[in-house]
Nucleic acid binder design. Structure first.
Lengths: 206, 206, 206, 206
DNA sequence: CATGAATGAGCGTTCATTCAT
DNA sequence: GATGAATGAACGCTCATTCAT
């Protein structure tokens, strides 16, 4: 894996930002038309390269999509990990995750569309994704929840796994709904609402 | 030859449930391989009919998928509406929706997989009907939430829309995760946990 | 051939005008949509019979078309032969042939369309037709021309074959043009014009 | 393998006349079997290219046929127009048209067959272009006839339209008959006979 | 005789991938 | 490296024909 990342860097070194151009073009085109309705030729055209050139940088059409998703998730993961260095409180950590997750919409709208659609197009793909990326997300949240439980901030009679899935699912659905309806929202504010529900529930107080 | 014909008759039982055999086969095959990786011929084979036979019952490949999803959701919707006749309390209503939603896994695992994948694709036809159904679900929950707010059971400072999406997303993700990891769960128990989180939050009490 | 005609009569005897209904329906449908765009099922529907029924009366879809054309031409041929019994003069005979040929448009417009289109759709079919029917037409005209030459009415320095083909072609093209443009014409008057050109030419008289 | 590649190169000569190879193959195959009985794969095979290659040069199967017919007629039309620059007399002009029309047989026998068959099919696209071309032919002749009438060479009591259709039909039928019976003829001589009939008629002089 | 559900070969077309240049 | 013409397998769908009823 490290090896592969290094190679990428080398390639994109010189004038080889063709690699990145192809990735971006793929995300855009696929977001607009769907994976199976996006011929490699359309991606190549958008990237401004010849069809065959794509195969100099990627093994297959599938590989382009996979790489784009992997790299997006990698960025998400790194951003969260970096912030955690100076962000200690479980509550704030959850809110930060929610916020970054929801921000993905505005950072790269095409990518957000793609993650809500193409990423889920086949059980096979999901199984892969579930194991590689989602699991990492869930782990992250579970650890935060467990730390909160240990600190007495969060209830101990609740499964951290269930909480983690609920949180991911809730945010993902809000994001998804915004993507499909074209609605805009304020990531910070929405994150705060979700965390409010998650922490305090909707039952009328006391 | 007679033997073979007899066998077919046995299989097809009453009369025209080739229609149903095709639907079931489609759901199975598409759940396994994805819509675009499931040739009509594969569906036909699984259903034990000739390729052309599918077009006696459906207008197109699209139509098969659409019909399968429509009918599944219709069943879900009706089940909930029926139960609501004798189930009044907002809290119980939410729990019932969660439970039926989670039960879909055991009722028809392939359909559950399919709902987690194909229903979200970007193809134009999804926008048409995926949303048609999801919107109905969200509406249902929003109404329950609003009634709870009016009755003073639920907090009034929270958007019913956000709550509805959170609930759907949380449950759907739990379902999805179970589907893809092959985990089993008890629908009633899981539903109760999710509703607990949703109503009371995870923050340690007072 | 006689045998086949007899059989047809027997079939159409009782309530078996299904045979004729199928022929008529085929001509109509094919005239409207073209042979290859006219499924047997469309012909059956128009005829008010089941698809399979057509195969009780005809060997194949091709056979229906062939039979319709054969029978139309047969009627034409008989009509001309009958009239010749009391119509002696070569000039009048030619004019009569032209008139009946041109009348086919009004007698059965669909059949006229079909003869101008589908009958010519493949070299194979034309070769058959050319040999079976057209040859008869040409022969008829050639004999009339030869008799006219013997009687000193027609020039002897002209090939009767060329004349016959010219006459058929000229009339057929007028008919065809009317069919395609939807124009109407008076068969008797048009026939008289064609024969005028054929007999007297268009050069200004001395 | 090298041998085979070399052979292909030899065949394809200069550069991109795959385009022409496909057109020629299409004309041949369609002339033999008819448009609807000529799968694209058969045309590709005859042209020595892969099925998909055809779609690099043409939009559809329809487009191949349309292009072939258009270009053939365009050549015919240009040849006539060019000759008219130095060919003034109406009589000679008619004879020239007849001759070029009849020569088409020897220039490209397959194309001649195709023009006698596919050009007249009922498919909608024929109405679009078959008539587009035929109308041009008829117009050309009508103008010549009218000029002849103005010059007092041709009778004025005869419709130029009828004459034009008669001439086209007569020649086309002679061509067609020769094509389908496999007969050969001398274009110049046959043209002269047809024009003789058209101008002077077959009635015995005075 | 008549039906029409069922078949499956065959079609036009697309597109991921290769490879000579 | 970069190109893009060429390939051909694969697809969704149609429809002539059959045959159990």
């Amino acid at each position: 894996m490290n090896v592969e990342l290094k190679k990428i860097d080398e390639v994109s070194g010189a004038g080889g930002e063709k690699y990145q151009r192809i990735l971006d073009a793929a995300v855009e085109v696929i977001a607009e038309r769907g994976y199976f309705n996006s011929p490699v030729s359309a991606i190549a055209k958008r990237a401004g390269v010849a069809d065959g050139t794509i195969y100099l940088y990627f093994k297959s059409k599938d590989d382009v999509l996979r790489t784009a998703i992997d790299s997006t998730f990698e960025k998400f993961y790194r951003k969260v990990v970096d912030a955690f260095v100076t962000l200690d409180a479980p509550r704030e950590q959850l809110e930060y995750i929610a916020q970054v997750h929801l921000e993905s919409h505005s950072v790269n709208r095409s990518m957000a569309v793609l993650m809500q659609t193409e990423m889920r197009q086949s059980a096979k793909f999901i199984e892969e994704f579930s194991h590689h990326h989602l699991v990492k997300y869930i782990q992250m949240v579970r650890e935060v929840v467990r730390r909160g439980q240990e600190q007495g901030i969060f209830r101990k009679d609740i499964s951290d796994g269930v909480v983690a899935h609920c949180m991911f699912g809730a945010i993902d659905e809000l994001l998804s709904s915004a993507v499909f309806t074209g609605r805009e929202y304020d990531a910070r504010n929405t994150a705060s609402q979700v965390i409010d529900v998650l922490l305090n529930g909707i039952a009328a107080g006391k």
